[in-house]
């Protein structure tokens, strides 16, 4: 991959990947950070990521792992420095998206990753299993539990909205 090809790939794939990582992290800055970092690593290991035949998937996997590792490190950092919970993220103004982001953030990482890979990135259950290193049955369970938890969360939000309207 020449420098020009890499730059073109970066320019084309970056927005798409930040969108996917935004769905995963619920944070624009975080999404940009991890995607950019994944591209830095990709240039250094371009043989490896080209050999796999799916460069965008390679970047996405690296970015998702970085996001997970940053959450864990940030939690530890917060405990060390602030001893207070992290600030609430302020998502965009669209209430539907806000509710979805909030509901997604309540899911365990593994369920959220499975949902995003399967429903957003169009990976089959088997591909999600391969990408996350989990057995197919586990991925199916994560998807099922994740969907159920999201449905519950969204129903709660809808119910609260209805209540607000009645008042």
């Amino acid at each position: 991959m020449t420098e020009e090809e890499f730059d073109a790939f970066y320019a084309a794939a970056f927005p798409r990947l930040t969108g996917q990582l935004y769905a995963f992290t619920g944070d624009h800055g975080e999404a940009q950070d991890v995607v950019q970092e994944a591209f830095v690593r990709a240039w250094d290991r371009r043989r490896e990521f080209l050999a796999e035949g799916a460069p965008e998937a390679w970047i996405r996997t690296v970015a998702m792992r970085l996001a997970v590792s940053r959450w864990r490190r940030t939690r530890r950092w917060l405990e060390l420095v602030r001893r207070t919970p992290p600030p609430e993220h302020t998502p965009g103004p669209d209430p539907e998206r806000t509710a979805l982001v909030a509901a997604l953030r309540k899911l365990p990482e593994a369920q959220r990753m499975a949902l995003v890979l399967h429903h957003l990135c169009d990976l089959s259950v088997e591909q999600v299993a391969s990408e996350t290193g989990a057995p197919v049955g586990t991925v199916k369970a994560r998807l099922s539990r994740g969907r159920a938890a999201l449905a519950r969360e969204m129903a709660t939000v809808d119910g609260e909205r209805e209540d607000d309207r009645v008042r």
Partner: peptide, 18 residues
């Protein structure tokens, strides 16, 4: 919902490829 969310979250690169 996820597709709309991802679309709304798309952002251009902060720095050029170089």
């Amino acid at each position: 919902g996820l597709r709309e969310l991802a679309e709304s979250g798309q952002m251009p690169p902060r720095v050029p490829g170089a």
